[in-house]
Design a protein around this nucleic acid. Structure first.
Length: 216
DNA sequence: CCAACAGACGCTATATGGTT
DNA sequence: AACCATATAGCGTCTGTTGG
């Protein structure tokens, strides 16, 4: 089913026929470069169509769709799968793809009417590595906090740890202000653990997609 | 630095199958 | 039969890579 017309032999060479001579159009054989270019282009299309065919096998409902509809269906399907995956991991300790640090307020412990200590839940997600837990422990202590409970999960070289820490001496208005400062300090210390390792840590909120070439 | 090359992409012409 | 949407194929051009 090779279309003809603007095909590979459609090279016109105008030959001068001298005075009063008419133009003569002859078909020149395709050059070696032209043949290889066409061949490369054919292979490229085969690759594209091969992958599209694979997508059709993965989405049986897409067997009678054209290419544009197929791609649209694939996009919809991937989004649906992502939502399902998110739903399944709600409340479950599973590392994500982004490096992140979270610190959320917990409950206070009271002595009489005064809060004496404050519980804080700190979570860290990053690539797992030797010594990481030790670094996190030091980060907690450097924020004048004490870890009282910790959970950790690793999946595929990624790690998520949720540590419940106790911030000390939270009493009165000044204590509450100190508590806020303490949480910020803790967050900062934990971020340092992520960033100070060869400078490769990427926090979710700071993540920028790599620049692509202008020809996209 | 530059030429040669490969890969990607847009454009155009043509083929094909479905619909009116 | 005419028309339309889609697929296919080749070519021109641009861009990134590589070797001299």
């Amino acid at each position: 089913m090779a279309p003809v017309g603007k095909g590979e032999n459609d090279v016109k060479i105008m030959e001068a026929q001298g005075t009063g001579g008419s133009d003569k159009t002859v078909m020149a054989p395709p050059s070696k470069a032209s043949r290889s270019h066409s061949e490369a282009e054919r292979k490229r299309r085969q690759r594209i169509n091969g992958h599209l065919a694979t997508l059709r096998t993965l989405l049986p409902s897409a067997s009678r769709m054209d290419k544009a509809a197929l791609l649209g269906e694939v996009v919809r399907h991937v989004r649906e799968l992502r939502c399902k995956a998110d739903d399944m991991t709600v409340g479950v300790l599973v590392p994500s793809e982004c490096d992140e640090v979270g610190v959320e307020e917990g409950r206070d412990n009271f002595i009489g009417d005064e809060a004496a200590t404050s519980r804080v839940k700190a979570s860290v997600c990053c690539a797992d590595r030797p010594g990481l837990m030790g670094d996190l422990g030091r980060a907690v202590r450097s924020a004048r906090a004490r870890a009282v409970r910790a959970e950790m999960a690793t999946v595929g070289g990624r790690m998520r740890s949720v540590v419940e820490v106790e911030m000390v001496e939270v009493t009165g208005d000044q204590g509450k202000a100190d508590g806020r400062l303490g949480r910020l300090e803790l967050q900062s210390s934990l971020r340092t653990v992520l960033f100070n390792r060869d400078g490769v840590g990427i926090l979710a909120e700071n993540y920028k997609r790599p620049r692509l070439s202008s020809r996209q």
